[in-house]
């Protein structure tokens, strides 16, 4: 009887957006950036904890993290934060059922809440891109 084949998509199911549309990619990115920011944040608590050792300790720590590889990593965290924050604002709004429409009698052609909040997704991407570009200019081109 139990000779069934498991067909659960697994992690690929939430990581890959497939042919579903932009919201699904926003969903995957939101989780990935969230995990990245959390990992950085926990390290950040310990790195800034070096202040307890006084000014010299702090300056030594900052000199160590001044290497280009850490700067690039920091910039990635900055980009992740921007996406996570801007998309997060959209999620707070739509997950509290604002801007996704009201129940109605479905009549063909059907509309749905995902498409009704699509303009938010576009706005999120434009706003995130603008902030990322501004941050990038500040980060890399305005050092002096």
């Amino acid at each position: 009887m139990k000779n069934r084949l498991n067909n659960r998509l697994g992690l690929g199911g939430w990581l890959g957006g497939g042919r579903y549309g932009v919201d699904r990619y926003a969903y995957a990115f939101h989780r990935l950036t969230g995990l990245g920011i959390l990992a950085y944040f926990i390290m950040h608590i310990f790195v800034t904890g070096m202040r307890v050792g006084g000014q010299e300790e702090w300056e030594r720590t900052m000199a160590f993290f001044n290497a280009p590889v850490f700067k690039a990593g920091e910039f990635l965290v900055f980009l992740a934060f921007i996406f996570h924050a801007v998309n997060g604002i959209r999620l707070v709004i739509v997950e509290l059922a604002c801007g996704i429409g009201r129940p109605h009698v479905p009549a063909y052609p059907y509309t749905n809440s995902t498409m009704r909040q699509r303009p938010f997704v576009v706005a999120v991407m434009i706003l995130a891109a603008l902030l990322m570009i501004t941050g990038g200019v500040d980060f890399y081109f305005m050092l002096n």
Binding site: F75, F81, I82, A85, T134, G135, D138, M142, L143
Partner: peptide, 12 residues
Amino acid sequence: GAHMGTMHMNTI
């Protein structure tokens, strides 16, 4: 947002 602004948009 304020933290990231002061840290990473400091030049602007």
